[in-house]
């Protein structure tokens, strides 16, 4: 038992070191040779927000208070999930030369991509802070719930990435399909439209969209300054955990034959 424990501890230490070196590699490569570098992680969500709020406030005229803030919150969070699942999905295929030659824990690769995107998300929070300052909104103490939300969403994104990475090894078509799915999913999530514009039955349907819960949670703690209820915490945690567990099980089941297919 103790042998197994120290075995696991050693493995964990090693895997987390690999993960850090991979994240730092991604970070270096992402910003290498760009003039503004990391600043893009802040600028990008800001520019997106400006563009989207120009478009939507002119064409749709939703009655949403602090619309740009509403928008950037939904957008950055959705971006985090969309990017981490997209890169996570490709992680095993991209790591093919490695997997074929070195004996490593394959779960590292999708997880590393999610953590890297989590880092980008954390940087993009600076953009959110700038918008808060611009609109002179002082967040309440409820903003302290943010790490909790990040945990929920990270669990969720990791689970999805595990499953997608495993399936993508067997069917490359998934890579193209997922882009479309994410697009539809983005429109089905209240990122730039208000939830009360939906008819009643759709308000029930949208409860099944995990991103709806995460985005609402995010706005609650940052924009509206509400304390998220125990119920919404449980829902977000439950969705995160269930997705993580399912994704990881799929990944573990399929990973043995990865090497024959990558």
């Amino acid at each position: 038992m103790r042998k197994q424990q120290s075995f696991l501890r050693e493995r964990f230490a090693k895997d987390s070191y690999i993960m850090t070196t991979l994240v730092s590699k991604d970070f270096k490569l992402k910003y290498r040779r760009s003039v503004l570098g990391v600043a893009w992680s802040v600028l990008n969500p800001l520019l997106m927000m400006v563009a989207l709020s120009l478009i939507f406030s002119h064409f749709f005229r939703f009655q949403i208070e602090n619309f740009p803030l509403y928008l950037i919150l939904g957008n950055t969070l959705f971006d985090y999930v969309s990017r981490s699942t997209n890169y996570g999905m490709l992680s095993i295929i991209d790591a093919a030369p490695l997997i074929k030659k070195i004996r490593v824990n394959k779960a590292i690769f999708p997880l590393e991509k999610v953590l890297f995107e989590l880092l980008s998300f954390a940087i993009s929070l600076i953009a959110v802070a700038l918008v808060l300052i611009f609109f002179q909104i002082i967040p309440t103490a409820n903003i302290l719930f943010l790490p909790l939300l990040m945990l929920y969403v990270t669990l969720f994104a990791s689970g999805l990435s595990f499953a997608l990475a495993a399936f993508a090894v067997y069917f490359r078509d998934l890579v193209y399909l997922w882009g479309v799915v994410v697009l539809v999913w983005m429109y089905a999530t209240p990122i730039f439209w208000p939830i009360d514009m939906l008819p009643d039955y759709m308000q029930t349907v949208i409860q099944f969209n995990p991103m709806f819960h995460f985005v609402t949670y995010f706005r609650q703690i940052v924009l509206w300054g509400d304390t998220p209820s125990l119920f919404s915490n449980l829902i977000c945690l439950g969705m995160g955990l269930a997705t993580f567990a399912a994704g990881y099980l799929i990944f573990r089941k399929l990973q043995r034959r990865f090497i024959l297919h990558v």
Binding site: K3, E10, R11, K14, I99, R103, V104, K106, Q255
Partner: peptide
Amino acid sequence: SFNSTNHASNALAEVACAGA
């Protein structure tokens, strides 16, 4: 069975066993 959890875990992981 050790390996089946992750056959690809890594050779170094076995240090734990070899050290015992």
